[in-house]
Nucleic acid binder design. Structure first.
Ligand SMILES: [Zn+2]
Ligand SMILES: [Zn+2]
Ligand SMILES: [Zn+2]
Ligand SMILES: [Zn+2]
Lengths: 149, 149
DNA sequence: AGCAATTGCGTTATGCTATAACATATGGCA
DNA sequence: TGCCATATGTTATAGCATAACGCAATTGCT
């Protein structure tokens, strides 16, 4: 069940940065926000992220090359397959799981005798708020802070 | 329906390289295999890939940062959500779609009023052949040619 | 044919993402 | 005390992707 073994200072800082941001951040964006705390090199961020990813407190979004704090520091223990919906406009992320989706993937894997180790389930698009704003002619937020140093 | 407008020389070379490889290749791996054909710069590969991705002849696997030829140059027109299973050991890729998986994602999107634009559905693990080989004590193939120049 | 617009191509330079390798420090424990 | 494991700091390097420029080929029109 991956007992959380109390976070170190760097891990706490990185997790705090992601939580406060409320949206996905690239490792380098995290680094920039932690320079005042003494961070100097990407490795300090990546090493902290490694541990946070292991314990499930943070997720990596492959489609964005960015990291996000787990929205329900729930039990990721239950083997649950987690999916993410990412708004291209406001960068908000919805983390959800659906037992039926999981069941279908498992069915495919069983039929093919494939042993699943990791999953990447991400859908990107426009959230309700952004679509409403767009319909009303408003510009909207700039997007996720990734690829922007 | 994205009429395929006849491929250019570079696009043909890149698609041929991916098809012949039969496994995912990074853009730089493709570049290396096309130097004898006159390729010099990553952009030549990326520009060809852009078009091939548009027309659905090639897919990008975010979890691998690599590209793979579509295994059934089928109609990707029908809005079908495509999923990939990737063997971590032999790098083979299974491309499949499941209307029930798609239906569940669509149901979530409709409930949240989220407009889906793109999907990344990838599961990685071990294929049947590699598991059997591992059980028999054999080493197996080295893995996908990504991150190796 | 003449001409403009589009698209593809080649090249150079640069930026973003991630890890290797080495050094130092710290804390638990035999 | 001496050993081991883990965290950390630092420098350098590898791997992935695009910006910006200029030129060439193609297309579509008059
Ligand atoms: Zn989570
Ligand atoms: Zn939004
Ligand atoms: Zn396909
Ligand atoms: Zn395999």
């Amino acid at each position: 069940m991956t007992q959380t073994p109390a976070l170190t200072r760097n891990q706490t800082l990185v997790l705090g940065t992601l939580t406060k941001a409320g949206e996905p951040l690239s490792a380098y964006a995290i680094l920039d926000r932690l320079r005042e705390e003494g961070f100097r090199a990407p490795l300090q961020v990546y090493r902290a992220l490694d541990k946070l990813l292991e314990t499930g407190l943070v997720h990596r979004l492959d489609s964005l090359k960015a990291f996000v704090a787990c929205s329900h520091p729930h039990e990721h223990a239950g083997e649950t397959m987690v999916a993410f919906a990412i708004c291209e406009n406001c960068a908000r992320v919805w983390e959800f799981s659906d037992s039926k989706i999981e069941a279908r993937f498992s069915a495919w894997a069983e039929a093919e005798d494939f042993e699943t180790r990791a999953t990447t389930l991400e859908i990107s698009g426009l959230c309700a708020a952004c679509r409403a704003a767009a319909a009303a002619g408003k510009p909207g937020k700039p997007g996720p802070e990734t690829s922007r140093r």
